[in-house]
Design a protein around this nucleic acid. Structure first.
Lengths: 131, 131
DNA sequence: CGACATGGTTCGACCGTACAACCACCTGAT
DNA sequence: ATCAGGTGGTTGTACGGTCGAACCATGTCG
């Protein structure tokens, strides 16, 4: 496990393991938003497992980069609804591309017959770890 | 993958995912030293995938805690040979215990028939990711 | 003997995260 | 209708892990 963390480069939180100079948490936020389309900020807190203060800053950073925009949440005057801008979607796509490249390279080193089993195992492990 | 990182708590580098209030990198260093007995500091640099400056600081921290001690490397006046103290071994054991607890809990949530396959898959993936 | 490489340390800067305090808004009970 | 307590967000502050560069000592090779 420890080996995996180091090999994957997870100990450097301000750089994506896939080589992109974007903080890991920001990349994750971008990914969630890209998949969901819209997201309440509080939902992002839960998915990213961060404090709301940290999440607030990350969102501010995304907005500053021009990747996301805040809107009022429908039916709740307190909430913030997040949405990716056009540039945000492009950035997410670039990130996904880098991720694909990185993973393809890794998968190449896994015997073809085992690939699917490994991917499924990772999903199982994630679910098991997730309390 | 991203889900796994968040679920496992890897985004918080100053706390072990297993609940111990010890920085992740320090825990990894402790683990390597416990397994190897002795280790050159430069070897730790490679295994931890850190800069030598960062490694130096981590070692200093271990020494400060009374968990490790530096010695001259045999046959090389520049090098530093690292060794765990008695307290260091105890600390490593406590860490291993916490890890075991955490993993057992996770493994309990994996169908018995799949456990071995999942563990093997993780090893395969680590090797594949490791350039 | 001199040039370059290697192992370590120290210094400075950056940045991600948590915690606390605070505000705005919502909700439910009286 | 009102007030208490809960929830969503922001800002200030502190902490700490990591890197890069400068520097030193030691080893190595021509």
């Amino acid at each position: 496990m420890a080996r995996f963390v180091r090999a994957f480069g997870l100990h450097q939180p301000d750089r994506t393991p896939c080589g992109t100079p974007v903080p890991v948490s920001e990349a994750h936020a971008l990914g969630e938003l890209a998949r969901e389309g819209e997201l309440r900020q509080v939902e992002l807190v839960h998915r990213l497992r961060l404090e709301k203060s940290t999440t607030s800053r990350i969102v501010a950073q995304l907005v500053r980069r021009g990747w996301a925009e805040r809107a009022a949440a429908p039916g709740d005057g307190r909430g913030v609804l997040l949405r990716l801008t056009a540039e945000g979607h492009q950035a997410a796509e670039r990130l996904a591309e880098a991720r694909r490249t990185r993973f393809d390279a890794a998968l190449d080193r896994i015997p073809a017959g085992e690939r699917e089993a490994v991917m499924r195992a990772l999903a199982v492990l994630t679910k098991a770890v997730d309390d």
